[in-house]
Each structure stands twice: as C-alpha cells, then as structure tokens.
Computed example of a mutant assay.
Amino acid sequence: MTNTTVPNEIDVRSLVPMQRHQKIFQLVDELAPGRKFVLVNDHDPKPLYYQLEAEHPQQFSWTYLERGPEVWRVEIGRLLKAA
C-alpha cells in the first residue's frame, strides 16, 4: 500500500548556504525508496537538481510545489526503481 501521509517538510532557509547542500544531500542519502520530503528554500534550488542528478542519476523525483518569488517548495523523492 502506498504511503499517503504528508511528506516531511524541511525548511533550510535558516541555515547558512554552505550548510544547506550538506543537509539536503544527507536527507537524500537517507531517503528510502518510495519516500519523499518537501524542501523549502528562499531561492530556486534548480542548481541543486543538477548536482543531485549528476551524483544520483535517475534515482529521485523533483516536483515544484511552489515557485517563489519569496518561497520555493520542491518535493524530492527516491524512486522505487533506485532500490
């Protein structure tokens, strides 16, 4: 059965930029197949998408839920086929 609960929301706006990617990559590495979280940021995290895709090719989903101008929310999930 699919988990339909609201995914974890991780707000990185309070972290200094250097800590943001470290925290996000930690979350992605710990993410079980089929699970997801929502990233909340103060700018478009598109460069992060390219970095994740380079390091974890075709292993995650990336869906914009909100696109600024003050808040960006992106749902990041580990694909089941990445198991």
Score class of each variant (00 low, 15 high):
Arg73Cys: 08
Lys46Tyr: 13
Asp42Ser: 15
Gln59Lys: 08
Pro69Gln: 11
Leu65Met: 03
Asp44Lys: 05
Leu52Ala: 02
His43Glu: 11
Tyr49Phe: 11
Val38Ile: 14
Thr63Leu: 14
Tyr50Phe: 13
Asp44Met: 07
Thr63Pro: 04
Glu55Leu: 15
Val40Cys: 14
Asn41Met: 01
Arg67Leu: 09
Asp44Gly: 09
Leu48Trp: 04
Val74Glu: 01
Val71Trp: 11
Leu65Asn: 05
Asp44Ile: 10
Tyr50Leu: 12
Phe60Val: 01
Tyr49Leu: 13
Gly68Pro: 06
Ala54Gly: 13
Arg67Val: 13
Leu52His: 00
Leu52Phe: 00
Asp42Pro: 03
Asp42Tyr: 01
Ala54Phe: 12
Gly68Cys: 10
Ser61Met: 06
Phe60Asn: 00
Val71Leu: 15
Pro57Ala: 06
Lys46Cys: 06
Val40Asn: 10
Phe60Tyr: 00
Gln59Ala: 08
Leu48Ser: 04
Pro69Ile: 12
His43Thr: 07
Val38Trp: 01
Glu75Lys: 01
Pro69Asn: 07
Arg73Lys: 10
Glu75Cys: 01
Arg73Leu: 08
Asp42Asn: 15
Val74Asp: 02
His43Arg: 13
Glu66Lys: 07
Lys46Ala: 15
Arg67Glu: 14
Tyr50His: 10
Asp44Asn: 14
Phe60Cys: 07
Arg73Thr: 09
Lys46Asp: 13
Pro45Val: 02
Tyr64Lys: 01
Thr63Gly: 08
Val74Pro: 03
Asp44Val: 09
Glu75Met: 03
Trp72Ala: 07
Gly68His: 11
His56Lys: 14
Glu53Trp: 05
Gln59His: 08
Trp72Gly: 07
Thr63Trp: 09
Pro47Ser: 08
Leu52Asp: 02
Thr63His: 13
Pro45Cys: 02
Leu39Trp: 04
Leu48Met: 09
Phe60Ala: 00
Asp44Leu: 06
Tyr64Cys: 07
Leu48Thr: 04
Arg67Gln: 11
Pro69Leu: 12
Ser61Asn: 07
Glu66Ala: 11
Gly68Thr: 13
Asp44Arg: 08
Pro45Ser: 07
